[in-house]
Amino acid sequence: MAGTSPLSRSRPKPSNRTGVFASLMRNLAALMLAVTGWKLEGDWPQDAEKAVLVAAPHTSNWDGLWMIFAAAYYRVKLRWMGKKSLVDHPLGWFVKWLGCVPVDRKSASDIVEQTAAAFAESDRLTLAVAPEGTRSAMTEWKSGFYRIAIKAGVPLIITVLDYGTRTVKIAGLFQPTGDYQADLPLIKAYYANAEGRHKGNFSLNAGED
């Protein structure tokens, strides 16, 4: 219900990042989430300075907005992969500041290697990746999010964007073992009851009404 506090169930603990701007954005995000009726659940992992954030379900452009608000509340700057051309101009620094991690699809090194290199060059990086890879219905997740975590040697942060309960949940850290086929069912289990904005497009229940 609109107006419900995002802190009504508990008071999720943010990251250990501090600063006036981070605090301001956190308060603004809490207000926006309250006004729109979204709630937060789960504490931010304090020992994850570098991680791949699993962003699912992803069935709508609205998903990014709720994730941005949630990240701001947790005092985390989400970063995302974008084409290198997005930063190859005088205002490229601003695009990077917004969170873009540029990747060159024409490079000899693949995207996984380029992204792993970005992790190595950063002291702190939370990279949001939608495993479905598209807002349209998919029957399988793409493995890029997992391969990036393995190559960079970082954990996964499991986040569940559930439109059914209007909750953004931080389910916790998942340490990938390197066995994708064994780990994937364990990761997907966190999303068993989640609903995307367009329910039938979520890959766990693709094809349903």
Rank of each mutant, 00 (worst) to 15 (best):
A2S: 09
G3R: 11
S8P: 08
R11I: 15
P12Y: 15
P12F: 14
R17Q: 14
L24I: 13
N27V: 06
A34K: 15
V35P: 06
V35H: 10
G37D: 12
D43K: 04
A51T: 08
V52D: 08
A55F: 15
A56L: 12
S60D: 15
G64T: 07
W66H: 13
F69V: 03
A70N: 06
R75A: 09
R79D: 05
M81K: 03
M81T: 02
G82S: 00
S85F: 07
L86F: 03
W93S: 11
K96E: 14
V103K: 08
K106C: 12
A108P: 05
E113R: 09
A117W: 04
A117G: 05
F119K: 02
A120T: 09
E121L: 12
S122D: 11
D123L: 04
L125N: 09
L125F: 14
L127P: 10
V129E: 05
E132H: 03
G133E: 08
R135H: 09
S136K: 07
T139I: 14
E140A: 04
K142A: 03
K142V: 02
R147P: 04
A152E: 03
G153F: 15
V154S: 06
L156E: 02
I158F: 13
V160Q: 02
R166T: 03
T167E: 05
K169T: 11
A171M: 04
Q175M: 05
D179Y: 07
Q181Y: 11
Q181G: 11
A182I: 00
D183Y: 08
P185M: 02
A189T: 00
N201G: 06
S203C: 12
N205H: 14
A206S: 13
